[in-house]
Design a protein around this nucleic acid. Sequence first.
DNA 1: AACTTGTGATTTTTT
DNA 2: ATCACAAGTT
Length: 790
Amino acid sequence: MTDPFSLSETDAPAPQPGGIAARARAAAGGRRYLDGLNPEQRAAVEAIDGPVLVLAGAGTGKTRVLTTRIAHILAEGRARAHEILAVTFTNKAAREMRDRVALLAGPVGEGMPWLGTFHAISTKILRRHAELVGLKSSFTILDTDDQIRLLKQVLKAEDIDDKRWPARSLAYQIDAWKNRGLDPAHVPAGEAAAFANGKGGRLYALYQERLKILNAADFGDLLLETLRLFKENPDVLKQYQDRFKYMLVDEYQDTNTVQYLWLRLLAQGRHNVCCVGDDDQSIYGWRGAEVDNILRFESDFPGAKVIRLERNYRSTGHILAVAAGLIAHNQGRLGKTLFTDDEAGLMPTVTGVWDSEEEARGIGEEIEQLARKGHAYDEVAILVRASFQMREFEERFITLGLPYRVIGGPRFYERAEIRDALAYLRCVAQPADDLAFERIYNTPRRGLGESTLQQLHEYGRLQRVPLIEAARFMIETDEIKPKQRQALRDLLANFSRWASLIGEKPHGELTEMILEESGYTDMWRKDRTAEAAGRLENLKELVRAMEEFPDLAAFLEHISLVMEAETKDAGPRVSIMTLHAAKGLEFETVFLPGWEEGLFPHQRSLDESGRAGLEEERRLAYVGITRARRRAKIYFATNRRIHGLWQTTIPSRFLDELPPDHVEVVEAATGAAYGGYAQSRFANMDSFGSTYGTPGWRRAQRRTEETRAESGASSGGGFARKTSQRGPMQIEGELIAKSSASSAFAKGARVFHQKFGYGAVAAVDGNKLTVDFDKAGRKMVLESFVEAKG
DNA sequence: AACTTGTGATTTTTT
DNA sequence: ATCACAAGTT
């Protein structure tokens, strides 16, 4: 709360607390917004011409630099608000930036039409030139649900077993291609062939065709089609290059390939592009983010200035030291060293507990203790690696009566009832919206099933008309059974009646009427499950939210890209969220449970991405620690239930990587935690002191641990032996052995796999093999799962 | 068309 | 263990 960057000091017209010089500048009508910036921040703000990369470590005032830079450009008269492009990843970030610019620069800031997410800005551009990419400017934006429904249809039409080739995976694959800027024609042949026995590329192409027929774009298209628009229409590109005199990009480390290409095209105009980011906080590689974009910036944009923000205004000394010590284990980083003038403060703690239940209990107690000392609940957060960890905390907090809230979870507009309600509105307002129609045509139940829908599809395809129109025709024929025909007729009559009321009735009321008359709200009222009441609440909230828009069309336009969940706050609460959701936030006290091998770093991340995966996990740990202002409290459990089975776990390797001089190891209340394996490891942390620090020593230590455990002398006997032989040793072996040495398998080698049978190695990537299996097709497998077959 | 049983998957998440 | 989803059954 004592944020030295609090904006109030810069927006108030009152005399500044900034000393004589500052006051003199203010009196001279000077650039007060620059006051209080440190030299690096100021350099980042003032270097407005040419490409600039601002490497902004956690808590170094990144958003402040971005917003002040915009204010500076405006104040200097270098560009007007509509000539600045400012891109963020999330709506939340965009909103925050807009608000803060408004505080600095006044109402001009609010009028920035090109401040928004990549997707929102792309949509805006695309609607203006839609016909150039084969869409109408009224195109609808499909979300993931619609996308999957459509893909299922494509798979069915191609007669592909969607059990073996799920629509979900195809959606994921297509998304990945789009993230990399690949349209169907440019997907590498090998990758296109990998899905559904060679049909992947064709399915992608068919899906794109269907999208065009439906006049729809999915999220990936918004970027990819804009890119295509720019590439195929140099005049259009030129127009935007000229328009955007200055460009700013937030969270540059999260850009994927399309976004990078999109930016580069635009930046080729005036070269005034400023990217702000932190390679150490890149945690979205799994959804296409390319850390390389930030690592390559200087070569991509020749003559670029690179400015490092390393002065941290958030955390105390020990916390920063621990974060720095951990992240130093990553290779492939640009390298920054955060420092602070703040006190050393409390050391982060590491606490071992017996199991996840004790973990929840212990953390609950610590929070209660803090609360008794007067700490606010909303200054405490629990950051988990995976969402299943949340439940145990929730249960514990409910019994304790400790107020908490879970951040993340299903977003408001993704909830079934909201999507259903929206589908009704889409059917009424945009009668060509087949996907919306399919969604609600039998919701609530009105006796319409698969076979009737099939008939409508058939006619629709034949006549090239949307489903609703097909239905209008079909109800006049005998082809549909009487009962179904009547149900359809009623539904269509309702659609028409509601449609005629658009513009007549306020859209909020109209929506209520639709939900009432369609029987939709009744459906939930009759539902006696626990969630039903909440769903009705959400529908009310939806109506309330839409009333803030001038009309239905405006609401529908916004809904697909920006719709925020509500939650009016009922007092201060402890926040429970994933580490990913915590990026950009900060708390006085942060609890970091579950630091165990397999969970954190997550096994799957290691399996799928090897060393890169491990480094991303480490960055995630870094993000977690740097959320804390004054207290960071790490926990690990010796036993954890995974998929219903209790498993013995060993402490995360990240714990070993924390600088011992800055960490306090806490004995768990029960003492149980230090039985077994945990003991040997953490006892070392104290007794070995500084020797402990070298990576080589640690690796050696880990290799000998097995031996030591087997002797049973120093640590917990049989218990330790059992754990040391499992899982994590493999991880270690794999990572250390395989990252340096090359694979034992060569391209073309014949191999055998327990599940997929015989096959030939098509490619080798470290410990991962791409194998063409005789029966199962192309798969990527870990080397350790196949054996050589001559 | 609605209900029942069986199968498989189960990190992270925005737009 | 648990849940979602899909095929099989009534």
